[in-house]
């Protein structure tokens, strides 16, 4: 489970989050929608323990992130908007290194399958990632995050830079991870992908949760209309 309880965070005089409460149950995918500066990335960084909240609590799989960040991170997979990798290593070597840092021992053929499963072309597996496009690096990052088989997965604009096909595959992958029992929180701008893969969608603005939506009951156009209406009323 992923949970934030009345979490607030400010940067100097700027209030990034105001008493934000979210819960993502195991097997559920929650989409976090909002404009730039709404507090999506701050929420993700708080959940990953990169930042400490000013008040409130953040819990991953029952572990308080502030009190036990290392333990919480061991139960967490994280995919940033721009996946940074070691440019002088191949995709396989990057996956190997990051997996070993997480204490995982994955056979090489399984790692290769994982990379292909995450959308990387087989011929790219042994290429240096310095030659990769942003989308290709993103796929390696997804492989790294999901190889942990974490109880919680948080994604910060994961489809950024992915082509439509890879973006669709990512949605399927996220869905699969959730179906296997993980709680997934995905910050995104992409309403279509949110509808495709999320069980629930929350809209945040000015650091506050302004609306919760069941995307299954709406068309993509309806979802967009609701989102735009919220943005207009908030601006």
């Amino acid at each position: 489970m992923i949970a934030t309880q009345a979490v607030s965070k400010s940067y100097g005089s700027t209030q990034a989050l105001q008493a934000l409460t979210l819960t993502v149950e195991p097997g559920e995918v929650l989409g976090l929608l909002g404009p730039n500066g709404a507090g999506k990335t701050t929420t993700i960084h708080l959940l990953a323990g990169f930042l400490k909240p000013d008040s409130g609590s953040v819990v991953i799989d029952g572990v308080d992130v502030v009190k036990n960040p290392d333990e919480a991170r061991s139960r967490l997979g994280y995919i940033p908007e721009n996946v940074a990798l070691y440019p002088f290593l191949s995709a396989m070597e990057n996956l190997q290194h990051f997996s070993s840092l997480a204490g995982l021992k994955i056979p090489r053929d399984e790692m290769a399958r994982k990379l292909v499963h995450c959308g990387l072309a087989p011929e790219a597996i042994h290429r240096r990632v310095s030659t990769f496009s942003k989308g290709m690096r993103q796929k390696v990052g997804i492989a790294i995050a999901t190889s942990k088989n974490a109880r919680a997965l948080i994604l910060d604009e994961p489809a950024s830079g992915l082509d439509p096909h890879a973006s669709h595959e990512l949605s399927m992958l996220v869905r699969k991870v959730a179906d296997e029992g993980a709680a997934v929180l995905m910050a995104t701008h992409d309403l279509f992908r949110a509808k495709e893969s999320c069980d629930r969608v929350v809209i945040v603005q000015g650091g506050k949760l302004v609306q919760e939506i069941d995307p299954a009951s709406l068309s993509a156009n309806d979802l967009e209309a609701i989102y735009l209406k919220q943005m207009e009323s908030g601006s």
Partner: peptide, 17 residues
């Protein structure tokens, strides 16, 4: 540099202190 590129976040998220 690792913080600026985001590598630090990926490392920390993997459980590296």
């Amino acid at each position: 540099r690792d913080r600026e590129t985001g590598l630090l976040r990926v490392l920390v998220a993997q459980g590296v202190s």
